[in-house]
């Protein structure tokens, strides 16, 4: 039964991906992409990685759909172009690449152990119970730190492209709708609650800073979508401070170990520091993602047009 399930998920993933690439309408491609995320998270559960299933659920269902829908909405007057005719020229090299990669899979040694045993050996040193969190925030701290840096660079890039000093300029109140407001009232506290729950869970079970950050960001984006003005109340200095807090906190922690004549990025009181970093990282991931979604310079036009139709 399990194998049939895997086969069907695999086949449908490939089929949906093929359709996304080949279909003419952009809107259909985006709806199919949301479905693709759903199927992918079913695959993660079968591969025993609930962490990734949770992250995929948060990103695929929430932010990715919102981003692509918004982009399509502001850019929608482009006609659906015909597909190019150079099908075989491009398809055959891709097929060749796929063949090469498949060839490598067949030659993985059968007694391959992976890094699992090493991680579980070193896990007691971190005082964390859950290996994925330990890898993220301790063993591979560099990666997580630089990942926060990537988020910051993306926000900076958006600011450069928009030629603006702050993200907040584009935060327009959306059309006020009774059902929109109602759903905010109901779902927002739950989002904050569930985000906090995932963060707390991260110390000993699947969950953690990434998933919690994405959920909180979804909450912020939903506030914006339903036209709630409260995001604009946060002063832009605070906005910036929160944005860089994860990165800076990580850096302070990492360089403080130099004071004790230890190696860069090692820390004595592991668990407390790690949890502190995790909380700061969650906040900055959330704020950076909100800024990235809100950065939509073409919004002004649409707003004016809406006012005209209303009046």
């Amino acid at each position: 039964m399990g194998l049939i399930f895997d086969l069907i998920i695999g086949l449908s993933l490939a089929g949906v991906a093929w359709r996304i690439v080949r279909v003419r309408e952009h809107f259909q491609a985006i709806v199919l992409f949301i479905t693709f995320g759903l199927l992918l998270s079913l695959a993660w559960t079968r591969l025993k990685s609930p962490d990734i299933a949770i992250a995929e659920a948060a990103v695929g269902a929430g932010l990715a759909g919102v981003l692509l829908m918004d982009a399509l909405g502001t850019l929608s007057s482009t006609r659906n172009q015909p597909l190019p005719g150079r099908f075989l020229q491009l398809f055959i090299p891709c097929l060749f690449l796929a063949g090469l990669m498949a060839y490598t899979i067949l030659f993985i040694p059968a007694d391959f152990q992976g890094l699992g045993p090493m991680v579980s050996e070193a896990l007691p040193d971190t005082h964390l119970e859950y290996p994925v969190t330990a890898v993220l925030l301790d063993f591979r701290g560099y990666d997580t730190w630089l990942e926060l840096g990537v988020l910051l660079v993306a926000v900076l890039g958006v600011l450069c492209v928009r030629q603006a000093g702050t993200i907040k300029g584009s935060m327009l109140p959306a059309p006020a709708e009774p059902v929109g407001r109602w759903i905010i009232k109901l779902l927002l506290p739950l989002m904050v609650l569930i985000g906090g729950y995932l963060l707390w869970l991260g110390a000993f079970a699947p969950g953690g800073a990434f998933q919690a950050g994405v959920v909180l960001a979804s909450g912020g984006v939903m506030l914006w979508q339903a036209g709630h003005p409260s995001l604009a109340l946060l002063h832009h200095v605070w906005w910036k401070i929160l944005m860089i807090s994860g990165f800076v906190f990580f850096l302070i922690l990492a360089s403080s170990s130099l004071l004790y004549n230890q190696q860069f990025m090692t820390h004595p009181e592991a668990k407390m520091w790690i949890l502190g970093v995790e909380y700061a990282a969650t906040l900055s991931i959330a704020i950076c993602l909100i800024s990235l979604v809100l950065a939509s310079p073409a919004r002004n036009q649409g707003d004016q047009r809406a006012r005209k139709t209303e009046s």
């Binding site: 659920a57 929430g62 919102v66 829908m69 929608s76 569930i194 979804s218 339903a226 047009r305």
Partner: peptide, 21 residues
């Protein structure tokens, strides 16, 4: 999370209509 967040794509879809775009 799926139950919580699926409605956001619909909200994004609908927002574009109310702007008349």
């Amino acid at each position: 999370l799926f139950a919580l967040l699926t409605v956001m794509a619909v909200l994004a879809f609908v927002r574009n209509t109310s702007y008349g775009v």
